[in-house]
Nucleic acid binder design. Sequence first.
DNA 1: TCCAATATAGGAATGATTGTTGTATGGTTG
DNA 2: CAACCATACAACAATCATTCCTATATTGGA
Lengths: 154, 154
Amino acid sequence: MEKIIERYKGKGFKLTPQRMAILKCLDGNTSHPTAEDIFREIKKQFPTVSFATVYNTIQTLRDRGELLEITIDPRRKHFDPNPAPHHHVICSSCGCLGDVFTDYTEALRPPAEITERFRITGNHIDFYGICADCQKKEMRNNTHKEEVKRCQRR
Amino acid sequence: MEKIIERYKGKGFKLTPQRMAILKCLDGNTSHPTAEDIFREIKKQFPTVSFATVYNTIQTLRDRGELLEITIDPRRKHFDPNPAPHHHVICSSCGCLGDVFTDYTEALRPPAEITERFRITGNHIDFYGICADCQKKEMRNNTHKEEVKRCQRR
DNA sequence: TCCAATATAGGAATGATTGTTGTATGGTTG
DNA sequence: CAACCATACAACAATCATTCCTATATTGGA
């Protein structure tokens, strides 16, 4: 809490109450929330808060390199307050996300025909899978399996 | 051309002229077009074609496993008619895509704490970089570098 | 305390994607 | 070859995430 204040003091970042709430909501958060998740959370404290405020703050944090935008869910963006490079798993059924902290950099050397055409600056691995909860659900009503798959895939 | 016909004959897939055009446009296409790219291309032959037709065909092909949906560009989806598992590079500046056919499966073993929580079904690597064209542009007007970066990132 | 810079709420705008509906067409069957 | 049924079509409305705009309010530095 005081950490947050001292972390963002000065440096042209105005600490408004709304931003404090957003920062507190994100601090140590490993749930990979969407903008809407954050919005809903903040709204509990500030019922009149605007979506634009959430997006503005997200954008500022991202530009400062303190928040990662995760492009793995085709439906919407997720955000990760852990700026350390790492990877993610997504459940193909419910869309929930998990962190993968294994360091694969050594293994991920792109081939020459790529490095000739691109100056590579980074990488990110998407793992796809089915989470424990969805495996259970699958088991229970596997008559509806196809429907669920189709429904959630979008 | 005839290959396309025999490939899709029967099996509940109606070969309409519009679909033929879409299939021909995608056949061997490594440019990773967006739905709009395909739409614009097809429109040359069928000026009255509807966007829905493009999306419907894309969706059908994807459900048949003959088209990959690429979630790497936060702005929009790209499509890849090569269903063989492979990876992609994206230029952080202009958003253009390249294929990476190196097989990294051996190296990409997720750690136990992940395999306990997810039944892993696949993976995909996003490489980030700057393409040759954008490197040149960067050099030319590097006074505008910051603007370009910000503009294109969204 | 005052001021300039910047954040805020609110709502409108955008852009990609999906849904709906009535009509047209492809492909199978007789 | 004719008829029929399933399904694709065009046209457009609707949805959803995200961004933009504007007038007002707030923050943090002088």
